Amino acid sequence: MVNIIHTIEGFSQWVGRAFGWCILILTLSVSYEVFVRYVLNAPTVWAFDMMVQMYGALFLMAGPYALAQDSHVRGDVIYRLFPVRWQARIDLVLYIIFFFPGMLALFWYGWEIASDSWRYQEVSWNSPARIQIYFFKTLIPLAGALLMLQGIAEIMRCWLAMRSGQWLERLDDVRETEDMLMHTQDGAALLDDDPERRS
């Protein structure tokens, strides 16, 4: 079961990293548009659509990655005080009642939206460039499917935690600096040496 969980998580991480390049494309598109618009006085007709699609792709495809890294926002004021077995039970119930129905709806209706878009060969009506957007709309059901796949790994995690009383370690990836400082002895030493942190 651990190998299945880590395989799914590894795939979610790979997808997240791959679509992370959308940030670079988005940044270059915005920078280029600002330059040609305000310096050369020659705005493009495609930059707005490019920015919307890159941001949308990043937003959709980062979901499975964030779930695999347990980095979605959680209201854990009380949750964190519970024993691990109870945390796992709560997560399991919430995944079954809320997460999977929501992701199934995203996949189901996203599939309808994407298939209609492909059938009409839909283009953007926001700009004169008339950029094709049916490729982009395909990401909606794809994101739903990948989130459900990662959700299966999370259900398995809950099952293991209910049996063992410990959460399975997640695959390492990029972490927030503050998070790294809080979870390492070196970080604890750095915090102790920082006068602003002590005050």
Rank of each mutant, 00 (worst) to 15 (best):
E112Q: 15
A161H: 02
Y79N: 05
R80P: 03
S164W: 08
R163I: 05
R163D: 10
E112C: 08
M156E: 00
D186G: 12
M162T: 01
Q150P: 05
D179S: 09
G110L: 04
Y79T: 04
L104D: 04
M148A: 05
R157Y: 01
Q150S: 06
L106F: 07
A189Y: 11
Q121K: 12
Q185H: 14
G110T: 00
M182W: 09
R163E: 15
R89L: 11
L142M: 15
L190H: 15
M180A: 14
R175H: 14
Q132E: 11
Y120N: 10
E112A: 13
R175L: 10
A145P: 01
R80I: 09
Q185G: 06
V174R: 15
Y79W: 13
G144T: 03
Y134M: 00
L94Y: 13
E112R: 12
G151T: 01
T184L: 02
M148H: 05
E169Y: 09
W118S: 04
A143V: 05
A145F: 13
G102W: 02
D179H: 14
L149M: 14
W118G: 05
F98Y: 11
F98I: 12
W167C: 01
W125V: 13
Q185F: 08
L94M: 11
L146M: 11
A188S: 14
I140P: 03
L106W: 03
W108K: 08
R119W: 11
L147A: 07
M148P: 00
A189G: 13
N126F: 15
G187T: 00
Q121D: 01
Q166E: 15
P141Y: 05
A105K: 07
W108N: 09
A105R: 04
F107W: 14
L92K: 08
M103R: 02
L94G: 15
R170I: 12
L168W: 05
L106C: 08
A189V: 11
F98K: 06
Q132S: 12
L104H: 02
V174D: 15
Y109F: 14
E122D: 13
L139N: 01
R163M: 07
L190I: 13
E178F: 06
A88W: 04
A143T: 00
A88E: 01
E176N: 14
M180F: 09
S127Q: 07
A105D: 08
L142R: 04
I97C: 12
D116L: 13
M148I: 10
Q132L: 11
G187N: 04
R157V: 02
S117P: 00
M148V: 07
W86S: 12
